[in-house]
Design a protein around this nucleic acid. Structure first.
Lengths: 294, 294
DNA sequence: GCCAAGCTTGGC
DNA sequence: GCCAAGCTTGGC
């Protein structure tokens, strides 16, 4: 089903972006629950065949927002994805069970070939500010195994600002176990986990940058009422799935190398000039100079 | 002299980085004042022939730190550049004239072919935090004409955190006019300008994102005791210089296109594979999968 | 391993 | 015009 979704994204991305978004939304929202849950497990990893910086990449990202929004709904919240671009979160979700809170969320996806995931790329403090005065919590959902593994400024920043760092894997585990907010069961303590951790004296000041994902796992397992052993088994399943995915993605790039080896001289040269973006650089400089030149 | 500096950077960048840094430092610190002032005018624009993501780019950036540090010394402060990498500012400067303050600074340079300068790339809130409890001010020095021209989150963030946004052009104007901190003349109000502006009621809350560079210009002109008309003439000179620079940089890229057109099929194909970084992608995925596979 | 130094395309 | 969505190399 995930493969079909990416096919649809590629197909729709030739249309007007807003129309394409609506088509993708309809496709995602009409999936059967079981199909949708499979998509949640895969969506954090952008397929290598989605080309970088392209409209299809933007539509893929939008699709991941729509997926996350449906996840929040399956967890028992009301949720919509937003159409803003600058200086705004992607998604809003709101409790419907009388707990009177709402949250903003940001969905992140990376390719397996992604190199440095920089602290600035997570925009923790910006995300925190995007809550504004209307929303209590803010949640970032990124691929679990692509978070910094030992320590990072994103952890101290998140503790500081009360940003909840979750992963697609976490969301998927909650869904697979049919966790749902009701009048008698609140998810609020998950969204609020960073603030709770910040009050935990075992996370000493000097160590604020330490990766707190294991702690996060404990919070979620406790909320779900499962043992850590069981929880780690869930995570391990996702790990295996990503490994399998990696083999496919490598095959894709090897195929690309083979294709290029068959190129004619003319094709290789023109594509080399294109790939090096030389004309674009010249155009950028010209436009810049022109602006300065009035 | 700037061209000679970039030549030296390319030459040294084949050496061990720390040794190369020392060579560059010696070269910069031994320049005559007039030569050095010419370098300050150019250093904000990375030459296109410095290749992206390379050691020479890193050494260029380091050179710009060393240049900025010498600028602070010429302005009458004590200053050193730091060798840290993550989670730290590049430069520290300290007042020697009895005003008892110190500051951290960050030097930024861009190529003329640089496309989006994203708000996250300025890392305003991080820079602010890097002051720690020891330093009063924090200063970002970037190319004047590459700052957002109308409005940006960087302006509201800077007002919020008291980050001083300056440019190479500003520093150069101060140097050209022989401005220097002394027992009777403090530069503190320049480094503190953002906090002062934040208190200015004419910068209404709703408009906090507005570009405050014109205001900054007024502060500096006032400090220097020159009229705005004169100050704008200075800025205009730099504008003309950048326009001239752009013509050279475009010539460089056109030369590259001509070179490529002469390539043999084999060379074009192998360089195309290299430029597309296909092997690196395969390697990154493999390493990632291997890490997950223990 | 983290993330500084850089970077591009396209949606609003 | 701004900056969301992504991205890489190499120094510590």
């Amino acid at each position: 089903m995930f493969d079909l979704l990416t096919e649809k994204i590629k197909e729709y991305s030739t249309n007007d972006f807003k129309k394409a978004t609506e088509s993708v939304r309809k496709f995602i929202d009409n999936m059967k629950e079981e199909e949708f849950k499979d998509v949640v497990k895969e969506v954090g990893v952008i397929p290598e065949h989605i080309s970088h910086d392209s409209t299809e990449e933007k539509l893929y990202s939008k699709a991941s927002d729509i997926v996350l929004s449906r996840c929040f709904r399956m967890l028992g919240l009301a949720s919509i994805d937003l159409n803003e671009r600058g200086d705004s979160a992607d998604i809003i979700a709101e409790s419907k069970s009388g707990y009177n809170y709402s949250l903003v969320a940001d969905a992140k996806c990376f390719r397996l070939s992604r190199t440095a995931r920089n602290q600035k790329d997570y925009k923790i403090t910006n995300l925190s500010a995007w809550r504004g005065s209307e929303h209590e919590y803010c949640v970032l959902v990124a691929p679990y195994y692509q978070y910094p593994q030992t320590r990072s400024q994103i952890y101290s920043n998140s503790l500081d600002k009360g940003v909840c760092l979750l992963s697609w894997e976490h969301i998927s585990i909650l869904l697979e176990n049919n966790i749902r907010e009701t009048e008698t069961f609140s998810l609020e303590s998950i969204w609020n986990a960073s603030s709770m951790m910040a009050r935990d004296s075992s996370l000493a000041f000097a160590n604020a940058q330490k990766c707190f994902l294991p702690k996060m796992n404990e919070y979620i397992a406790k909320k779900m009422g499962v043992e850590m052993e069981q929880f780690n088994l869930f995570l391990s399943e996702y790990r295996k799935q990503i490994i399998a995915r990696g083999k496919d993605e490598i095959m894709y790039w090897n195929g690309c190398v083979d294709e290029i080896r068959k190129y004619s001289k003319e094709r290789a040269i023109s594509e080399l000039i294109e790939t090096k973006k030389l004309q674009e650089k010249i155009r950028t400089i010209s436009a810049y100079v022109e602006r300065l030149d009035k």
